[in-house]
Design a protein around this nucleic acid. Sequence first.
RNA 1: CGGGGUGUAGCCUAGUGGCUAAGGCGCCUGCUUUGGGAGCAGGAGACCGCCGGUUCGAGUCCGGCCACCCCGACCA
Length: 485
Amino acid sequence: MAEQITKRSTSYSDWYVDIVLRAQLADYSPVKGSMVIRPRGYALWERMQQGLDNMFKETGHSNAYFPLLIPESFLKKEAEHVEGFAPELAVVTHGGGQELEEPLVIRPTSETIIWSMYKKWIQSYRDLPLLINQWANVVRWEKRTRLFLRSTEFLWQEGHTAHETEQEARDETLQMLDVYKRFAEEYMAVPVLTGVKTESEKFAGAVDTYAIEALMQDRKALQAGTSHFLGQNFARAFDVQYQTRESSLEYVWATSWGVSTRLIGALIMAHSDDSGLVLPPRLAPTEVVLIPIFRSKTREAVLEAAQTLARELRQEFRLELDTDENSSPGWKFAEWEMRGVPIRAELGPRDLENSQVTLVRRDTGEKESVPITGAAERIRSLLEEIQQNLFDRALAFRQENTHRPETWEEMKTLFNGDGSDEQTARGGFALVPWDGDPATEALVKEETKATIRVLPFGNEEEARGKTCLISGKPARHMAVFAKSY
RNA sequence: CGGGGUGUAGCCUAGUGGCUAAGGCGCCUGCUUUGGGAGCAGGAGACCGCCGGUUCGAGUCCGGCCACCCCGACCA
């Protein structure tokens, strides 16, 4: 009997690690906290990059590349920025066998190096807006790491834009947040909440940080992407002024926004099951795996039919034909399920007799037989159904696990309960009125481990006239609390 | 960084001071197989985490160190 993965109900975190390793998405590297992204994981990332990159281009952004090494002094130019990142910096002190005059930090993010360049490139309103994105790796020295979710080095994209007016920059911030939301929901089939972060969860150096937040199957939230309105903070720090239409000098307005390989972790934890990975068709590197099944007498006929079918289907789908004769069909079924391929097509003697092919969908396990001649059409619709079903399923799960506790006690039970029944569900989202006081937020964290994930858009209106669930003071916001990764 | 746990072949595990460290999975060769993790035969693969100590003798006992995992602190 081959290796099984840990069941979700036994240990969610073991299950997660098992999937990443067994589905060959990634492996531990010799350096603590850093990981190797293996071909199956990287193919997934490439699909994500493609989808996102198209959306960035459609909204007018261009790609560029800024260097990995940043003079240490750059980080120090923005007070909050350096304070936020100092604890997790990797610093290069030697080069070419000699100690450097000034240490270089390995970028934890690129605002500083980029704004040092923007200073050179921006003189006039005619140079604006400047809309640049880069695909890059960054390093943050985290104490506690997890494959894809928080690793020392990770891959991401970071957009950095410069604008004439505050309004334009604010619009850009929200536009990119919406791009992320659409990508999460339409490609990843992961529904996300959007909103603004509180002071304590804000990006170091931002005026406002917005985020998309997804709910994982263990009812913990995962911040899947952020978009920041940076105001004029970096423009001031790097002295980036432009001449306005009226010939006066103004600091430019800025945004930055990013998503990372953490999205792969989100994808895994949103959809996968005890048999392995479950991938949404739009992002699956392989949409269909075709497995021929034969005995020695039927070998030639089945293989030939499989080749023919594969050739035809490849015109439309990303298909793999698994003709390995050393492993049994049963083995292959389990293996391709582990890898998360949305549709398995089986072609055996019985199918051939009836001129049909058997299709099995990964998300539900449902099996059906269709005429070979109509296979492409059915696969096309099935892929759409799977994509939709994954989203619907995840959305239903989020709805079931979004609560509006009536009292502070009820909220504590929600997060501290043993999970034995509905009332003590141990987690999920809790939408409650909040007085806006960081001390109240801190108290909730202390007593429940839950933090404010976002203040949803329009929350002030909804909070009007209500009292804070925790302090009993007048509420200023509706806040979404959750335990998070 | 604090508390707990684990280190024996690629993976999982046995080995309770005594001979050449054992088994399963996986891997390689050959044959037979193939509709939910196939069978037989043969084979390769281990500085038992590292360093030191006790002992006639250490995978096993003692000390130190390291790595990884879990819980916490920390983490836009």
